[in-house]
Simulated scan of single mutants.
Amino acid sequence: MLNANELKTDILNDLRVELSEEFDRNFERKAFFSDKWKPRAHDYPKGSLLLVTGAMRRSTQGHVEGNGVRFSSALAYAAIHNEGGTGFKPVKSHQRKSKKGKVYTVRAHSRKFTIPKRQFIGDGPDTQRLIKGVIDDNLQKFNLSLTNFIKK
């Protein structure tokens, strides 16, 4: 028979697995559940939206911590894609050629960029619905095992 600690552990492990699968499917859906991601300004021939190499998709992992499940990515750029925002990227000094053929040097500088929010991990109505479903399923299993224990 399950005790309260085992029930909690089962719920958290099931949440980690279920949410991991759904967050992974967000890359296929190109949406955070049903909220579609904003398309790119230009159509790039290489890869799909947020899926050029698949590194970000593979890097997201869930961990049971205390009384919850925490999702993270080891990649520095995952957070800005998930939350959106602006930043600065360093540009190295390099050579350019003008239309007239003159070669000149561009000094090193920083370029500002803005990335729209394309959430793939986080909380929302769909996440809460999944959490409720996992908890309900585990409580039903717990009640069945409790009922079977009492009958014996």
Rank of each mutant, 00 (worst) to 15 (best):
V91W: 02
K8P: 01
L12R: 03
E65M: 10
G84M: 03
L139Q: 01
H109R: 11
T105N: 11
L75F: 03
T114K: 13
K99D: 08
T127S: 11
V17K: 13
A76S: 15
R107D: 09
D14C: 03
T114D: 14
G85N: 01
L144I: 11
D10C: 03
T86W: 00
E6D: 13
E28D: 15
R96Q: 11
A41V: 07
F88Q: 11
S48L: 08
F27S: 04
Q119P: 02
S93P: 06
S20R: 06
R25E: 13
V64H: 03
R118Y: 09
L12D: 10
I80P: 01
G84C: 07
K8D: 08
A41Y: 10
G66I: 01
K132A: 12
D24N: 14
V52R: 12
F33V: 04
W37Q: 10
V134Y: 08
M1P: 14
E6V: 14
L7G: 02
H81W: 05
I11R: 01
I121M: 15
T60K: 03
Q61E: 12
T114H: 14
R118N: 11
M1A: 15
S110Q: 14
E21A: 11
G54W: 11
R29T: 01
A55P: 02
V69P: 00
A74P: 01
G84L: 09
Q119R: 15
H63M: 13
D137C: 03
N143G: 04
Y44Q: 09
G85K: 01
D136L: 05
L144R: 15
V52D: 13
G68P: 01
R29A: 06
Q128F: 05
G101Y: 01
K8L: 09
K117F: 01
R70S: 10
V17G: 02
K36G: 04
K99P: 02
P39E: 14
K38C: 00
K100H: 13
H42K: 14
R96G: 03
Q95R: 13
P39M: 04
T114W: 10
L15R: 06
K112P: 02
I131N: 06
A76E: 15
G87Y: 08
S20A: 15
F120M: 12
F32V: 08
G54Q: 07
G133P: 02
K100V: 07
E65R: 14
H81E: 08
R129Q: 15
V134W: 04
F23R: 08
L19N: 07
V17N: 10
G87P: 09
G66D: 12
Q128R: 13
A55D: 14
V134R: 09
G122Q: 07
F113S: 00
R70D: 07
S59R: 01
A55S: 08
R57Y: 00
G68W: 03
L144K: 15
S93E: 15
K100R: 10
Y77I: 03
